Amino acid sequence: MPLRAHLLELRSRVGRAALGLLIGAVVGWLLYDVVFQVLQTPVVALQGAEQGTQLNFPGVMAPLDMQVKVSLFIGVLISSPWWLYQLWAFITPGLTHRERLVTVGFLSAAVPLFLTGAFLAWWLLPKAVGVLTAFTPPDALNLINAQEYLTFVMRMVLAFGAGFLLPVVMVALTMVGVVEGRTWLRGWRVAVMLSFVFGAVATPTGDVLSMLVLAVPIVVLYFAAVGIGTLLDRRRARRAAEEDAAYLAEHGG
């Protein structure tokens, strides 16, 4: 596909993904009150503690800005099947009709993995908030900036979700021939190291257990993707050998 066609395809896919995100954000706007109550649960749970913790809206426009950001955050989660499909459709524009059928398999794997990562982040969030606010001096009130708190939550949830998407991206790149399965395998040491670095950065508590909770599943998923990529390489090599044999037989070689 020419460069211009690639750019046009990219613009089209980004536009469609943005439209899906917008629709999800509208739904998020309607669900804001319920979702915000859930988001502030880890903070509310600490209000009876000695350090005293409370969300703070610094400014007249802060509540509106908060609602817009939460709506967009909900939109990203709700529309994840749609924008993940757009990502897949952009990566695999030249596949055969039979290979396009794996789109269902891609979404069946990508969406649960993304949401699993997001849920794992939410599961760790109360612990992260508790550990970080524990440094508040006794008898002091910790007025947490609501917007900074939301940024903290969004970064953690989306980072975990993105980390769990790694294997499906690897398989997609192997399927379209960009990266071979054995190339992923050769880089396993670097991949393991980066997984633990990512786990340390994405988990703000800094404790070993939280890092392992994120890093170990990513490593397992990486090797699972390597295995699938290796099978795809073998199938591609076998198909090429069969085509060469058929060509030689046809032309009397």
Score class of each variant (00 low, 15 high):
P126K: 03
P126M: 04
P126N: 10
K127P: 07
K127M: 13
K127H: 15
K127T: 14
K127G: 15
A128T: 12
V129F: 09
V129P: 05
G130P: 10
G130L: 09
G130F: 06
L132H: 07
L132F: 07
L132G: 01
T133P: 12
A134W: 07
A134M: 02
A134N: 04
A134L: 10
A134S: 12
A134K: 09
F135V: 05
F135C: 00
F135L: 10
F135H: 11
T136K: 13
P137C: 07
P137A: 05
P137V: 09
P137Y: 08
P138D: 06
P138G: 09
P138R: 13
P138Y: 11
P138L: 06
P138H: 08
P138I: 02
D139H: 05
A140P: 02
A140S: 13
L143R: 12
L143D: 05
I144R: 02
I144D: 13
I144N: 02
N145T: 01
N145M: 10
N145C: 08
N145W: 00
A146F: 06
A146N: 01
A146Q: 04
A146W: 11
A146K: 06
E148T: 14
E148V: 15
E148H: 12
E148R: 11
E148Y: 12
Y149N: 08
L150T: 02
T151M: 13
T151N: 15
F152A: 06
F152S: 00
F152R: 07
V153Y: 10
V153R: 11
V153S: 05
M154D: 08
R155E: 06
R155G: 15
R155M: 13
M156P: 05
M156V: 07
V157N: 08
V157T: 12
V157A: 09
V157Y: 06
V157D: 01
L158Q: 00
A159Y: 11
A159T: 05
F160A: 15
F160L: 14
F160G: 11
G161Q: 03
A162G: 14
A162L: 15
A162P: 09
A162N: 10
A162H: 10
A162K: 12
G163D: 08
G163L: 03
G163S: 06
F164H: 11
F164G: 05
F164K: 14
L166W: 03
L166T: 15
L166F: 10
P167N: 05
V168K: 04
V168A: 00
